[in-house]
């Protein structure tokens, strides 16, 4: 019971900050006021699904793929009246899952390894490579998860 409450708190925490990040980037991308609320909802939903997946011991890439797929599907069905804007809202909702921090970690690690007096380069290369691969696969998971529903529905909108 305690575990369940703690888990719910974690999900709510991730959903709240996912929604906040999606809405913030929505302002940067010039979404209108109503769309911003939907971006926040999409971000919260995506992060909640991903957190539940991670709690179920899925990989980050797998949980991110399912979260993007679910967000795009819900947007496609629930916001069908908005046409192409529904896809844009789903994309904005998935932006908080873009693993930019992994890419930065990988590049900073590579900078260190490539220094002429690099110490323990062999030990440092593995985390950097791992971060780079996680960035690539997670980004691929978001792209695939977003694209599949609209291609299956043949309703990519304009």
């Amino acid at each position: 019971m305690i575990d369940l409450a703690a888990q719910a708190r974690i999900v709510l925490h991730q959903a709240f900050f996912g929604g906040l990040a999606a809405a913030g980037f929505g302002v940067l991308f010039n979404f209108g006021p109503r769309s911003l609320a939907l971006c926040a909802g999409a971000g919260a939903f995506a992060l909640a699904v991903r957190t539940l997946g991670l709690d179920a011991h899925w990989t980050l890439e797998g949980a991110t793929f399912v979260a993007a797929l679910a967000t795009a599907s819900v947007a496609l069905i629930g916001l069908r009246g908005l046409g192409a804007a529904a896809q844009a809202i789903a994309l904005a909702g998935c932006i908080p899952m873009v693993p930019g921090a992994f890419l930065n970690e990988a590049l900073l690690g590579f900078f260190t390894i490539s220094a002429s007096e690099a110490v323990n380069a062999e030990a440092a290369i593995l985390p950097s490579l791992q971060a780079m691969l996680r960035f690539i696969f997670t980004l691929g998971a978001i792209g695939a998860g977003l694209a599949i529903p609209s291609h299956l529905a043949r309703r990519r909108g304009f």
């Binding site: 900050f17 996912g18 906040l20 990040a21 999606a22 809405a23 913030g24 980037f25 929505g26 302002v27 940067l28 908080p96 930019g100 921090a101």
Partner: peptide, 9 residues
């Protein structure tokens, strides 16, 4: 809003 998004991230 962008600063808020970074902080939320």
């Amino acid at each position: 809003a962008t600063g808020g998004a970074c902080a939320a991230f």
